[in-house]
């Protein structure tokens, strides 16, 4: 708890990312019904919610991956919601999808080097290989020949190279062994120390608790509530109820 308080104290309070009245549709079926978010620079925020609540759709809407969406999305005060998809990354936004998106036609190293650098200050390839020695060993293998955990590492690693400031992670621990989950937790904490803003979608609540400083609870495509890590103990029962755990 003290660690979290200390980080809260040093963090910049301006909203680096904000969403207003975010709505999104899959064909005719509406998945988001007006999501509002305010994410501050350097904080780690977890989006919680039941299956089908709209967490993934929220991340995809922010990244510009939803074909049909409305509302306002600002990064550093600038509206990015009308930009072409390939311009959005240049505003410092990186997305690691739930299915990880490792390319089978590319080697591990090609996967790692694929996303263009959008800003200075990203990890160098050496730093990444120091952080994930497995990836270095397997760098000439086919990307999808990696294990699930290694693929998740690669998916995070390749985004870190680009110098993005805001990282959207969709269920990074899904289907991974506890040891690997711990590794990913370490990586997220290391990124936080580097000042990277993180929005995390997580079903593994214990994992979310380890890294998150603030929570949004999403239900039926709307924000039900949001609270800080310090308020969590008082909400445990309510939260178990909402999440159905």
């Amino acid at each position: 708890m003290t660690a979290i308080t200390r980080i809260n104290a040093v963090k910049d309070q301006t909203a680096i990312l904000s969403a207003r009245n975010l709505k999104a549709w899959y064909g005719e079926s509406q998945a988001l019904h007006g999501i509002d978010l305010d994410i501050h620079s350097g904080e780690t925020v977890a989006l919680l919610g039941r299956n089908g609540a709209g967490k993934t759709t929220t991340l995809k809407s922010i990244t510009g991956l939803m074909d049909r969406r409305s509302g306002e999305i600002k990064i550093g005060g600038k509206d990015i919601s009308r930009l072409p998809l390939h311009h959005i990354a240049r505003h410092g936004l990186g997305f690691v999808p739930e299915e990880r998106g490792i390319f089978s036609g590319l080697t591990v190293q090609e996967n790692l080097l694929l996303p263009p650098i959008v800003a200075e200050g990203g990890h160098t390839v050496e730093e990444i290989y120091a952080l994930f020695p497995n990836l270095k060993e397997r760098r000439h293998s086919q990307g999808t020949s990696l294990s699930g955990g290694e693929q998740q590492m690669l998916a995070i690693a390749r985004i870190l190279r680009t110098g993005i400031r805001i990282l959207l992670l969709d269920e990074p621990t899904e289907g991974l062994a506890p040891v690997i989950v711990d590794r990913i937790g370490d990586v997220i904490i290391a990124l936080r120390k580097r000042g990277i803003t993180i929005i995390l979608v997580e079903q593994n609540f214990r994992f979310a608790q380890r890294v998150a400083e603030r929570y949004y609870v999403i239900e039926h495509g709307q924000v039900l509530d949001q609270f800080s890590a310090a308020e969590l103990p008082g909400r445990q029962d309510w939260l178990s109820d909402v999440l159905g755990v």
Binding site: L85, I88, A89, R90, F103, S104, L106, P116
Partner: peptide, 17 residues
């Protein structure tokens, strides 16, 4: 090759697909 598999993700990385 990457865009052959998943053009939207490649574009989300900032590549002008």
């Amino acid at each position: 090759r990457a865009a052959t598999e998943n053009p939207k993700l490649v574009q989300a990385f900032g590549v002008n697909v």
